[in-house]
Simulated assay, not measured.
Amino acid sequence: MNRQIQDLFEDSVLTEAARRYGVAAAALKSLGGFESFVYEYEKAGRLYILKITHTSRRSPDYILGELDWLNHLADRGVSAARAVPSQAGRLVEQIPAKDGASHWLAISYVKAPGHLIGADDWHDDTFRKWGKQVGKMHALTQQYQVPDPKFKRIEWDESEEYDLDLYLPESEVLFKEKAARVMVRAEALPRESDGYGLVHFDVHHGNFHIQNGEIMLFDFDDCQYSYFMYDIAICLYNTLWFPKVPVADRTAFACRYLEAFMCGYEEENHLDLKWFAHLHDFLRLRHIDLYSVFHRSWDLNNLEPWQADVMARIKREIEEELPVMGIDFAKLIE
């Protein structure tokens, strides 16, 4: 999280946010958070999530674009933790920040039942159900119309993470040059409704819970217009970088995961095989995205060993134009 945003946060903000959702601040349980402050609370015997973010990250209208799409999906069969209104009936509550110029934004959601995926859940049936939920989202988004133009989410290449001059130092000349080539190739791809639309954009295994073998998605904060294959690439990327079970052969695991995932996906939505020829570039785009995020969010002078290793690996693979995975994805899916 941006350190300037952290410095603006104070206890009175939390107290007021809790009040607006009808609970006491003392009853909130902190769950941490990467780019927002996230809490859990109980009300009338049911568990909810309270998220507090800053207007330097999101505007109220932009968040309403997320929440309208989320509830649209939940109403039509996607297993997703829907947004709930405040005591005043608002989906987004605005609380003045101490700088007098900005606001904190409080949003609440039903807490997804179950638990984060663990080693016992790390198998093909889970991967298939994971793909099934993503496929259902992609099918439904093809008919979705934003109710108000003010709520429209960004296109993927409008994200500030791809403005590499914003966070990367001038010395990163080669990285920026090679990243730009990937961006150009991706931006040239067709943006038609059968392969492009509003997507979750962060369906990694930290963003769903599992209960009795069934999954429920949450954290739609990054939803934006992008390629369906990029959304799928993000799922694959995170299973490879942060697996719940140690992987001796990353290539074999990637093949197994993707086959199971796409079996579930195809139950709900068909994606033309031509898109798999671009999967390598979408994995590279995730590299580029995270490299920018890490420069923005981490203290680069005091990195943990694992953080330094991650950044070094991303830098090398982008600068040397190496594939994130040495697999012919199109042939695999065929």
Rank of each mutant, 00 (worst) to 15 (best):
D272H: 13
S56K: 12
K176M: 05
A233G: 01
H204M: 02
A260T: 07
D7A: 15
S86L: 11
Q143G: 04
P323D: 08
K331V: 06
L279I: 14
D221Y: 01
S108L: 02
A26P: 09
K132W: 09
S30V: 03
R82I: 12
L198P: 02
P149T: 04
R316H: 13
F253L: 12
L271E: 06
D309L: 05
A44F: 02
L273E: 12
V324K: 10
T126P: 08
V324I: 05
A248Q: 07
W156A: 01
V199T: 12
Q143I: 11
K51D: 11
Y257E: 10
H209W: 01
L28A: 08
W156D: 00
G65T: 09
C255Y: 01
A17Y: 06
A330V: 04
F127A: 10
D299A: 07
M229S: 01
Y39S: 08
L73C: 12
E155Q: 14
T15L: 12
D125A: 14
R3V: 15
F242A: 12
K43F: 02
A252M: 11
E214T: 04
V38F: 05
C263L: 02
E40W: 12
Y227V: 07
D75C: 09
R19T: 11
Q224M: 13
Q142M: 13
R316L: 09
L64D: 08
F9D: 01
L303F: 05
A26K: 15
L31R: 14
N302A: 15
Q224A: 13
Q87H: 08
R256Y: 14
I107F: 05
L70M: 12
N71V: 04
F294D: 09
I314A: 01
Y167G: 02
V310M: 10
W156G: 00
R46V: 10
K274A: 15
D99P: 02
F37H: 11
E304R: 10
N238H: 07
D163S: 06
V146W: 14
P305I: 01
S297K: 03
G33V: 05
P243F: 11
Y39R: 04
W298E: 13
L168H: 02
G45T: 09
L236F: 08
L31I: 04
R19E: 12
R46Q: 10
D219C: 03
Y21G: 06
L300D: 04
P96D: 15
W298S: 05
H103Q: 15
Y144S: 11
G326C: 07
Q211Y: 06
K129D: 00
Y162H: 13
P243T: 13
S59K: 13
F175L: 13
M137D: 03
L105Q: 03
K43V: 06
V146S: 10
D75F: 10
V78T: 03
E192D: 04
A179K: 02
D11H: 07
L31A: 15
E304G: 00
D124N: 09
R153G: 07
A17Q: 08
G118P: 01
R316A: 11
L300C: 06
A80C: 05
A308G: 09
A18D: 03
A74T: 07
C223I: 02
Q133H: 08
R20K: 14
G118H: 06
R316W: 06
F127I: 11
R153S: 11
G100E: 07
E334V: 06
L164V: 06
